[in-house]
Amino acid sequence: MVFFQILLLGFLVFCALAVSFTKRIISAVVIFMSYSIVMSIIWLMLESPDLALTEAAVGAGITSVIFLLVIKRINTMEEARSNARGKK
């Protein structure tokens, strides 16, 4: 059990480091989603089921979806502007 906990904590540190080293923003958001899910599992191992439910629904559900929506909106505006600039 202790070994499993140490494995999950190592995965957390690896995810947190990997967010800085990726080149694309979308992969950073996906890595952040998996960080949230593993954090939820650790809270279950620390005997707090309320926190695990809330973090699973909120961290991997709402926050990551909002990140992806904002990235897509900014990419769309960027494409429209660069097309406009290209035509000029």
């Binding site: 947190a16 967010v19 923003i25 950073a28 952040f32 960080y35 954090m39 620390l46 005997e47």
Partner: peptide, 30 residues
């Protein structure tokens, strides 16, 4: 800027992990 916000979120969840670990007592249940 988006990666800065992700870093801020990582800081917040790490503090939550610290607080929850302070409430755990070995051998007892939920």
């Amino acid at each position: 800027l988006i990666k800065k916000i992700i870093g801020f979120n990582i800081m917040e969840t790490s503090i939550f992990l610290f607080l929850t670990a302070k409430g755990y007592i070995a051998g007892r249940g939920a």
